[in-house]
Structures are given as structure tokens and as C-alpha cells.
Simulated scan of single mutants.
Amino acid sequence: MIEVYHNPRCGKSRNCLAFLDNANQKYKIIKYLEEAPNYEELSALIEKLNLKPIELIRQKEKIWIDHFKNQQMTDEAIIKVMVENPILIERPIIIKGNKAIIAREADKIEAFFQDL
């Protein structure tokens, strides 16, 4: 089953769901702002994305700029910041099995499903 980290207020996230609907893909929505992932879940997601934790941060968010920008932080500390402030997690994210992508562009979503 496909899982989608989704923020209903985000246009890119809504576009991702529309793409999946048009492709007749079944999926489960994870409203990560309402049910934030814990440290272990987020660590596993980062591994599936094959990213460094900092690459999953929305670095233009006010909370990041005001409290964390330009700080030297370990990967573990960055993950903890995202757990405590899920608004900082980049979106949308599509997860299928042991693979995941940040699905902001339709061509990336298409390529993801072709590679599965």
C-alpha cells in the first residue's frame, strides 16, 4: 500500500494526491501534522528517502529560521527537531515498501512508479 505524508493546506501535496488519483493508485494518507511521526518512524523514513536529515527540513519555515538556522546540529538533533516541529518536514512524501520520495513534481512521481 502506498502511503502519502500529506498536508491538506499545501498545493504540492494536493497535486500529488490528484496525480495518484488520476493514475488509479490506492493510497493511505498520513496527516503528519496531526499525527507526527516519532523518532524511529522518522529515522526509517529518512533511510527510505536516502537523504540526510537536513535535506528533509523545510529551511524557509519561520520556526527553522528563528530557532535553528546556522546552528551546528547532529543528524539525531535534526530528527528530534522535526519530531517536535513536524511543520518542518518537507512534503508531500510518497512511501511504497522500502522506498520513498519527496513528491513535489509530477515527473518525479512518474519516475518513482516506473522504478518500482
Rank of each mutant, 00 (worst) to 15 (best):
L42C: 07
A103W: 03
N38M: 00
Q114V: 09
P37K: 01
K12Y: 03
N70G: 07
E3H: 06
A23F: 14
E105I: 00
R9T: 12
N15D: 15
M73Q: 09
M82H: 10
L116Y: 13
W64C: 06
N24W: 03
I101T: 02
R91Y: 11
K62N: 12
E90A: 08
E47N: 09
I46V: 07
F112P: 05
K52R: 14
S13A: 15
A106Q: 14
K80E: 14
Q114P: 00
A77T: 03
A18Y: 05
P37A: 01
E55G: 10
G97A: 08
L33E: 01
C10H: 07
F68L: 04
P86L: 11
E34M: 04
Y32D: 05
K26C: 07
A111Y: 11
Q71G: 04
E34G: 09
N50S: 11
H6P: 05
A111L: 10
N38R: 01
Q59K: 15
K99F: 02
I46K: 01
Q25W: 09
E90K: 09
Y32H: 02
I79T: 04
H6G: 08
I57T: 04
M73S: 11
I57H: 08
K99S: 12
P86T: 12
K52L: 13
K69C: 02
I46D: 01
K28D: 12
L51A: 01
R9I: 08
E76H: 08
P8M: 05
R91T: 09
I102L: 11
D115E: 14
N70P: 03
C10R: 03
K108N: 14
L45E: 02
E34N: 14
I95R: 15
P92N: 06
M73D: 00
A106L: 09
A36V: 01
D107S: 13
E40R: 04
E35H: 07
A77W: 00
L56N: 05
A106F: 12
Y32S: 00
Q59W: 05
E55V: 00
I87A: 09
N85D: 11
P37L: 01
L17P: 06
L42W: 07
I57Q: 06
F19P: 01
E47V: 02
E40C: 00
I65V: 13
I102F: 02
V4T: 03
Y39C: 03
Y5R: 04
I54N: 05
I2V: 14
I29R: 11
Y5N: 10
Y27P: 12
H6T: 05
E105T: 06
M73C: 04
R58S: 05
E34Y: 00
W64L: 10
S13F: 08
S43N: 09
E105R: 15
Y39I: 06
I79K: 04
V83F: 11
K108W: 04
N50H: 12
R91Q: 13
I89K: 12
N24Y: 13
Q71D: 01
P37T: 01
I63W: 06
Y5W: 04
I101R: 01
V4Y: 02
A18V: 12
Y27H: 00
K69V: 13
S13E: 08
I46C: 03
V83K: 10
T74M: 01
E61L: 03
A103E: 06
D66R: 03
M1R: 12
